[in-house]
Computed example of a mutant assay.
Amino acid sequence: MPKAFPLEFRRDVVAVARKGEASLRQIAKDFGISEACLHRWLKLADVEDGVRPGATSSESAELRELRRRNKILEQENEILRRAAAYFAKEISPK
């Protein structure tokens, strides 16, 4: 798996690329990353800045947390449903 670059480094590279003083190929070479990686970082930065449509990192994190919480609540609901059915059998006349 490729190494993860620090967020600050990514921001610096994107800022240099947005200045437009050099080609993206040269910027990628100077910073030791692939050109495809630089293009991806630029797209992600555009989403974060609201230039492109898409989910920002904070929205993605919130969505992950909500999905996790929803799964827990569904499991708790299933446990309660089964418990109610079990206790209903005990108290119903036969």
Score class of each variant (00 low, 15 high):
Asn70Glu: 06
Ala83Gly: 00
Asp46Leu: 00
Arg64Ile: 05
Ile27Gln: 15
Gly20Trp: 09
Gln26Pro: 08
Val13Asn: 09
Glu90Phe: 05
Asp46Cys: 10
Phe87His: 12
Gly54Pro: 07
Arg68Met: 02
Ser58Val: 06
Gly32Ala: 14
Val14His: 05
Val51Ile: 11
Ala36Pro: 05
Val16Trp: 11
Pro93Met: 09
Lys29Tyr: 15
Lys94Pro: 09
Asn70Asp: 03
Arg40Leu: 04
Gly20Arg: 13
Ala15Arg: 15
Ala55Leu: 08
Leu73Ala: 03
Lys89Arg: 10
Leu24Gly: 15
Asn70Val: 00
Gly20Lys: 11
Ala17Met: 05
Arg18Trp: 11
Asn77Glu: 10
Arg82Leu: 04
Met1Cys: 02
Ser60Met: 07
Ala17Val: 01
Ala36Arg: 14
Leu66Tyr: 06
Leu38Cys: 07
Thr56Glu: 08
Val47Leu: 02
Val13Arg: 13
Gly32Ile: 06
Ser58Thr: 07
Arg82Phe: 01
Ala28Met: 08
Arg82Ala: 02
Gly50Ala: 01
Ile91Met: 12
Arg68Ala: 13
Arg40Ser: 10
Lys3Tyr: 13
Ala55Gly: 03
Arg18Leu: 03
Leu42Ala: 04
Ser23Asp: 11
Arg67Cys: 03
Arg25Trp: 13
Ala61Ile: 01
Glu90Thr: 02
Ser92Gly: 01
Tyr86Lys: 06
Pro2Ile: 06
Gln26Tyr: 14
Ile27Thr: 12
Glu8Arg: 06
Val16Tyr: 13
Gly32Lys: 14
Lys43Ala: 05
Arg18Gln: 13
Ser57Asn: 10
Lys89Pro: 00
Lys43His: 12
Phe31His: 15
Leu42Pro: 09
Asn70His: 09
Phe5Leu: 11
Ser34His: 12
Ile33Lys: 13
Phe9Val: 07
Ala15Trp: 07
Asp46Trp: 03
Ala84Tyr: 07
Glu8Phe: 08
Ile79Glu: 13
Thr56Ser: 09
Glu78His: 07
Lys89Trp: 00
Arg64Met: 01
Leu38Val: 06
Leu24Asp: 10
